[in-house]
């Protein structure tokens, strides 16, 4: 049986207590809520933490609902709760769609809004047991020095595998953090850094407390996920699209196209948005946007699914996501 290494468990009741515990134990502590990402990594001896700071019992992280015309989702709200929340389904249905596509029903009940945003980047060379990784002489993300996917790569290219993060970016969301120095908010766009190891702007001592999605009046969004099976799997491609227009035949005023499961971060493709802005959403503009997304993508061999196919699926998924918006009004 695969077992956890030794650790001490803490269940603080306030954000301040949680942060204080983290400060006290430093890098030897980790925040945890659902545990569905961290615990497997601990069992595989990828993550070593002597202290688990469980934030799932902190009341202020557990509320979700309408907020300033948009939404505010506490970090410890489960993905299942978020997906079935009436306000979420009304204001930003794409977020609900994405949350419902995560893993399995049980994991969605355990996993949280904050956890999915903080999901460790993934790689078939990394999400393996200590013994397996020893067989490839480790990789730079854990215990080793070079990247096994692309050996000349100066940085880790493990993949952002969150389903909800691309939607957060596309919807222009803000992420709230709380650290020893107090609270701050960063745009989802600047939260992710594009490096497989240092993949998010959250400082070591900071706790992600909420996801804030701004007023979506007049906006539409959609998320398309590609994975091997109908359930369980992480995305091998995720595409979130967002746009604003006055009516279904009016030109697109503003748009964002964000790719998931390709880069170490959910990656916005400005060229795809530009292909839409100022034009009606029709077969032609959709094709141009999908082509732009396709050109921007550089999948590498670190998830399941063949590379060339995954790249092609970006085109198809972008198209399908945009077509859904087209048919939505």
């Amino acid at each position: 049986m695969l077992r956890l290494p030794d650790f001490q468990y803490h269940a603080p009741r306030t954000v301040e207590e949680a942060v204080a515990l983290k400060v006290k134990h430093g890098a030897n502590a980790a925040f945890v809520a659902g545990g569905t990402d961290l615990l497997p990594n601990m069992k595989r001896r990828i993550r070593k933490c002597g202290h688990l700071v469980d934030v799932s019992h902190i009341d202020e992280l557990r509320s979700a609902g309408a907020f300033e015309g948009g939404l505010r989702l506490g970090a410890a709200v489960s993905l299942e709760e978020a997906a079935s929340n009436e306000a979420v389904r009304t204001v930003c249905p794409a977020y609900a769609e994405a949350a419902l596509l995560v893993a399995t029903p049980t994991i969605r009940r355990m996993g949280t809004v904050g956890g999915n945003l903080c999901l460790d980047t993934r790689c078939l060379f990394y999400n393996q047991s200590y013994e397996w990784r020893k067989g490839i002489d480790f990789c730079m993300k854990a215990d080793g020095t070079i990247c096994r996917v692309a050996e000349s790569s100066p940085k880790c290219i493990a993949v952002s595998s969150s389903d909800t993060a691309p939607v957060a970016l596309a919807a222009g969301a803000t992420i709230e953090l709380c650290g020893p120095g107090g609270k701050r908010a960063v745009s989802a766009d600047s939260f992710y850094l594009g490096d497989g190891i240092d993949y998010m702007a959250k400082k070591e001592d900071e706790l992600l407390t909420a996801l804030v999605i701004p007023d979506q009046t007049g906006a539409q969004s959609a998320y398309v996920k590609v994975r091997a099976r109908g359930s369980i799997d992480f995305p091998v491609i995720g595409v979130a699209v967002w746009m604003r227009r006055r009516s279904s035949d009016a030109p697109v005023e503003d748009a964002r196209v964000v790719l998931g499961a390709v880069f170490p971060d959910p990656r916005e493709v400005p060229a795809a948005a530009e292909a839409l802005i100022g034009r009606a959403l029709d077969a032609e503009s959709i094709r141009d946007a999908a082509d732009a997304a396709f050109r921007a993508a550089k999948p590498v061999d670190n998830t399941d699914g063949a590379l060339s196919w995954r790249k092609e699926m970006i085109r198809v998924s972008t198209k399908r996501a945009l077509e859904r918006l087209g048919s939505a009004r």
Partner: peptide
């Protein structure tokens, strides 16, 4: 033991969880 198969599903406080990913201390 990694949350990938569902065999260890139990009900915790009224909701199903994967017992392999729940610290007993919690």
């Amino acid at each position: 033991e990694l949350g990938e198969c569902g065999a260890c599903t139990v009900i915790l406080d009224g909701a199903p969880v994967l017992a392999c990913l729940v610290p007993a201390a919690a």
